[in-house]
Amino acid sequence: MKTLHIFVCALLIAGMLVGSALVFTPKKALAQEETYKIAVVVHGSKTDPFWKPVKRGVKDASELYDDLEVTYTDTDVFSIDTFLGNLDTAIASRPDALVCTLTVPEAMDETLRKVIDAEIPVVAINAPDLRSPESERIPVLTYVGEDSYFVGVLAAKETLTRFTPRRAVFCNHQEGAANIKARGQGWADTMTEQGIAAESVVVSADAQQAAEDVATYLKEYPDTDALFMSNIRTTEAVIKRLVADGVDVGNNLKIAQMDISPSILESIQDGMIMFTLDQQPYLQGYLGVVFAYLNLKYGFTPPPAPVSTGPAVVTAADINPAKGY
């Protein structure tokens, strides 16, 4: 995994050096003193461990430049309405640039087009606008993150290299989020192409209730032997509940996972999770802010979307406890 991190950073640096990825069109005199304000708005909740490295990346990027002020806004509990309200509040504060997740592109389209028309650069992170045709997508400066549909495809393909499920289910913990729905679609499409019964099932955004939802589903469809989980807290709760129910997790029921945490890595080592997919959330927060700032101050045009931060497959063989990973 360290190799992947170094490779991504090396590519970005190389692109800057040769000028093939970043275009320089000065907007303001370099000597001009000004404070640049960037608003970062994400749909993630404060209690979701996935978003902690995103926030840390935003913080680290904000401390790079003396003339940069960054605000970071998330949700207390995942809610599309709250997220959209936070976005409106951030825009009303008149930032110089906006960094945000495109969680519900259709609902955000008109608002963000007005922002872009007002010459306020918008950088998308984590959740892309995947609508077709591409001409209908919000014309953001760039997008930093994973290709959500491909994540589902890769999770399915990695699962199929290990065994052929009878029924394969994706657990959608954020109903209404376009990127999470796309993950499930990629998973289901790939499994269905192989003649495997597959579907996406909406579970609660509350981890404990989601565990109940999954337990109920497995009782109704006992032939289910593969789950693709897309949230750390949900997976922790699901494993605990299913083990308590006597389910042989890791053998009779196999789990593919998205994202990394100490508990997820431990479950991989214990054989309860086959693998996880890392999308490097720190880079999403960090690069989102850096790209917005460089565009504001120097007119840099960042690499075109998508600036991919993953996914990378992490198995037990990739985990080195001595290095804390």
Rank of each mutant, 00 (worst) to 15 (best):
P49T: 07
P49L: 06
F50R: 05
F50G: 06
W51F: 14
W51C: 05
P53M: 07
P53T: 08
P53D: 09
P53I: 07
P53Y: 02
K55C: 10
K55I: 15
R56Y: 04
R56H: 11
G57F: 00
G57S: 03
V58A: 03
D60A: 03
A61I: 03
S62K: 00
E63Q: 11
L64T: 09
D66M: 00
D67F: 02
V70Q: 00
V70S: 00
V70N: 00
T71C: 01
T73D: 03
D74K: 07
T75R: 11
D76W: 08
D76T: 14
V77G: 00
F78L: 09
I80E: 06
I80A: 09
D81L: 06
D81W: 06
T82E: 11
T82K: 08
F83S: 02
F83R: 05
G85P: 06
G85N: 09
L87N: 02
D88E: 14
T89Y: 13
A90N: 05
I91K: 07
P95Q: 08
D96A: 08
D96C: 10
L98Q: 07
L98S: 10
V99P: 02
C100M: 12
C100V: 15
T101K: 09
T101H: 12
T101N: 13
L102E: 06
L102H: 01
T103H: 03
V104D: 01
P105N: 07
P105C: 05
A107Y: 13
D109W: 07
E110A: 15
T111Q: 15
L112G: 09
L112E: 12
K114F: 09
V115S: 12
V115Q: 13
V115Y: 13
I116T: 10
I116Y: 14
D117E: 15
E119W: 10
I120D: 14
I120K: 14
V122Y: 09
V123R: 05
V123H: 09
A124L: 11
A124H: 11
A124S: 14
